[in-house]
Structures are given as C-alpha cells and as structure tokens.
C-alpha cells in the first residue's frame, strides 16, 4: 500500500542515484568517508537521517526490512523508521534478523551472525574519528590522506593514564584493511569484532555531517590498542535474566527504587528467539502449565 504522493522509498530517483554513487565509492575504498549531498528528511537530525537515506537508496520492492535501535525492534526510532518505509516503499518488514535483507541499525550489530546478501545500514552521528582531537576538517582530511594516525593513540593513551584501562566503551576506533581509521558509529566495543570479516555489506550514513562510508563483505577491521593494553570486547559480567544467555550484550534495567535491577539482552529478537526455544533466565516469568 504505497502512498502515491511519494516516489518509491520517499527519495527521488536522482537523489538515490547520487547516494548509490557515494556508496559504490565507499565500497571501493573501505573506511574512506565519501562526501554526499545529504537531503532534508522528514525527521530531525540525530534520528537517523543518514541511515534512512542509505536505506532508501538500497531498498528494492522485494526487500524485507528490519530496523533496530540499540538492539531493540520496539523503540520509538525503530518503530518510526520501519513504519516510514512500510508506507513510502511498501516493502515487507520483519523483526527477525535472519529473514531481513536490509537491516538499519542504531548503535548495535545483531547477535545472530549475518550472512552473505544481507545489508547492514548504520546511523552515524559523527563520522570523523579524529574530530574531538583535531577540530579542523581540512587537517583531519590531510591526516587520513597521509595516514597520520598517531593522534588516535593519544586518545587511548589518555584513557589509560586517567582510568587505568582503555575506557572508551563505544565508537571505539578501528583500522580498516591496514589503511583508514574509521569510527564504527556508537556501537559498543563488544560489537567491534563482528565488524571484521563479516559476510554482509556494512554501510554507514551520517546525514548531518554528509558522509557515507562502507565495509565490503569480508573486510579486515582491527580495533586500535597498545601492545601492553590490548583491545577487550567488554560486556556486563552477567547473564540475561530473561533468556539466560551468557554471551550476548546486555542492557541494565532498573526495576524499582530500592536498588533492584535486571540485565537483559539488548537484541530483543535474539532474546525472544531463545525464549521461544525454551531457554529461561533468572527472572523469566513462570511457564504456564
């Protein structure tokens, strides 16, 4: 049921073509930030305008779309964007990672391993990993061009000097194929290892900053670290209280004002699938008999 006031997937064909050209360039030069003429979208900056434009440029009528926000399918951002494309593109939507051909994500990579043929679209607030160290865009571009990445380690050095360990927990900088240093968007560093050697195409869109970058399938992505302070993909030291999984990334949920809390999988689809298979965590509701 596509609304006829819109072109397929909202954007006009010329714009989609422009974005696809940027995507192709991004795929050809993994980790390189390609400038593109970001459009005004019917949503505020910071809500995924970059990701939405990339998704719009990738969608075909045969696609099945999944949208997640911090791993969850049922939060405002995810629900709105899913509804947006259901209406403007008329594509099928799903919450199942395995059934989706295009997944737009904010700040997570799904727990279920992705496969060839899938596209993962990231929403990116600030694409430039060197931004908070070097405010001049002209200078950061030069630093990328000349592979002058010493400054990135200064940030990690400061972390260790102040906190005794690399305390950067999200948006953890990575090096792509030994060349470009890239901001993987604010995914937890727990997800960083999944960036590397991933069979899916990974596309990154930053709407306000007007940048697109990409990782083609099976790209080598290495998290930066020191020899004596190696990268650790950390997570909360608990198991999911609903499905009992001990290896997934967890959200901490405050349950009352007396210090009560529970840890649950941030990936809702993963958690539901496990519960459907009969896995039970500490606080899972009793099974009805």
């Amino acid at each position: 049921m596509s609304d006829q006031a819109f072109n397929f997937a909202y954007l006009d064909e010329a714009t989609k073509r422009m974005i696809r050209r940027a995507l192709l360039k991004g795929i050809a030069v993994p980790g390189y930030q390609v400038p593109f003429a970001s459009r005004e979208m019917p949503m505020p900056y910071g809500w995924g305008t970059g990701g939405v434009q990339v998704t719009a440029a990738c969608l075909t009528p045969e696609d099945t779309l999944k949208v997640i926000d911090q791993g969850a399918d049922d939060t405002t951002n995810a629900v709105s964007i899913r509804a947006f494309f259901a209406r403007t593109a008329g594509v099928e939507t799903t919450t199942r990672t395995g059934e989706a051909s295009v997944i737009q994500t904010r700040h997570r990579i799904p727990e279920e391993p992705l496969v060839e043929g899938q596209i993962l679209v990231y929403q990116v607030p600030i694409p430039e990993p060197l931004r908070f160290l070097e405010p001049r865009e002209s200078e950061t571009r030069k630093m990328h061009a000349l592979e002058e990445y010493g400054l990135m380690h200064v940030k990690l050095y400061e972390d260790i000097a102040r906190h005794g360990e690399i305390s950067t927990a999200y948006a953890y900088p990575v090096r792509v194929e030994g060349r470009y240093v890239m901001d993987p968007s604010p995914i937890p560093k727990f997800d960083n290892p999944k960036l590397s050697d991933n069979p899916a195409i990974q596309l990154f869109g930053a709407g306000r900053e007007q940048r697109i970058y990409a990782l083609p399938p099976y790209t080598q992505v290495v998290s930066l670290d020191f020899e004596d302070h190696p990268f650790v993909a950390s997570k909360a030291e608990h198991s999911c209280d609903l499905c009992g999984c001990g290896t997934s990334y967890l959200d901490e949920v405050i349950t009352d004002d007396r210090g009560g809390r529970m840890f649950v999988c941030s990936d809702t689809d993963f958690c539901e699938t496990r519960r459907a298979q009969g896995h039970r965590g500490r606080l899972a509701p009793e099974e009805r008999t």
Partner: peptide
C-alpha cells in the same frame, strides 16, 4: 601544545606518531 591532553600525552604524541604502540614504554 595540546591543551586538552595531559603532559604525558603531549610528550608521547610524537612517539605515537612515529609508531610507538607500547603504553609502558611511552610512559
């Protein structure tokens, strides 16, 4: 100088710029 970076980080920056990747040695 980088005014927002600690004294140690300031001194270490040139070392890291030429490839030093051992925190203990830089410190």
């Amino acid at each position: 100088l980088r005014m927002g970076v600690s004294a140690g980080g300031n001194v270490g920056e040139r070392l890291m710029a030429v490839g030093a990747r051992n925190y203990g040695a830089i410190r």
